[in-house]
Design a protein around this nucleic acid. Structure first.
Lengths: 192, 192
DNA sequence: CAGGAGCGCTAGCGGTGCTAGAGTTGTCGG
DNA sequence: CCGACAACTCTAGCACCGCTAGCGCTCCTG
């Protein structure tokens, strides 16, 4: 029975190798450079091996997305707990979110922009994703007012997502990013 | 000399034909269905003819984007001038924007999401694009408060863009769209 | 040690955006 | 009126993509 165990372990290791190779390649050269041929070359196996682990390229990207989302959740948590002032915490979380998108665009895209079939906004959503959303939610909790917290979080999140995607797509000038972010945070804070 | 004039006219007509074919095909089946082969078949010319009009597929998409943006500007203008109440006008503009994205996703994507090299946020930006932005801007003018109107517009626009892209990407549940939109409009309205 | 199952490989399918070069068409000067 | 030339379009093909059928090797099992 230990023979089979070893094989399964090796399989799992190879799967991890594929995911990290995809992630590394994407972060280095963008997702358009991640082809199944290059990926297979990286992990030193032939193309069809990829398909014995994942249903297709999308599934590989989805796996990378879940991993990356955990990183985002860590960043957001650190930002939220960096200060006791609720308003500053919200600003910090917003800045951390935008910073993540700026520093790791490939990771951000695969989580939030590219078409991968991950379940969002349902109980089946991957835990890291729910964790990241939860950080946003907790940061907004003091500002909830009469609104529903879940919907408020989704709306604030949309604002952040719009800011970073439009900026990265060249639709918004880079230099005023901080001021736009300040406006967003301000408008989502309760009046004193 | 009139021979050359006729040729140029015919060329211009064919160029329009290509653009409308691309737009029609994209709206009917999505941009992933718009290939240079299918496009060439639609206009009843061979592939290389497309490249005598446009530098590449991206340039064709950019042309469609400019056209589509004019439509968006019309919708936004109608919404903004549909009421005298500033707050209702802002809500109407937001709803019209989201509605456009929902009704014509292919058009919306090529304007705001896909990578096409259109100049944004500069004087060289296409007029229809500036017109659409201007409508948003005018709708926000009564709510500007102490903020810069341009930046406020960009930020509100980001909120709308985030809402529609996250929803269309399956990241936000569809059913609560109206309530999220209401929250966004509310948070971007001055307190009474 | 023979047989067989599992697995990774080579090769290839149908598609993509794009382009070189051949061939045809239509215009103009002699 | 005709032949040469210029403009233009088409066929064919390149290098790449995601994905898969089926052969052949390796290694475990009876």
């Amino acid at each position: 029975m230990s023979i089979q165990a070893r094989r399964e372990r090796e399989r799992a290791e190879r799967e991890r190798l594929i995911i990290t190779a995809a992630r590394t390649l994407a972060e280095a050269e963008g997702w358009e450079a991640v082809t199944t041929r290059r990926l297979a070359e990286q992990v030193e196996y032939s193309q069809p091996v990829l398909y014995s682990h994942f249903k297709g390229k999308d599934a590989i990207m989805a796996a990378v997305a879940v991993e990356g989302c955990a990183d985002l959740a860590v960043d957001l948590h650190a930002a939220r707990t960096s200060t006791d002032d609720p308003r500053q915490a919200l600003a910090a979380v917003g800045a951390a979110y935008a910073d993540f998108a700026e520093r790791r665009p490939a990771l951000y895209d695969v989580i939030f922009s590219l078409a991968v079939d991950l379940p969002f906004a349902t109980p089946e959503a991957p835990a890291p994703l729910q964790a990241a959303f939860g950080e946003l939610s907790q940061a907004l909790e003091p500002q909830v007012g009469d609104d529903d917290l879940g919907l408020l979080t989704e709306t604030f999140w949309s604002g952040l997502h719009g800011l970073v995607t439009l900026m990265r797509g060249g639709r918004l000038p880079r230099e005023a990013h901080d001021r736009r972010l300040a406006i967003l945070v301000d408008r989502f804070s309760q009046r004193p």
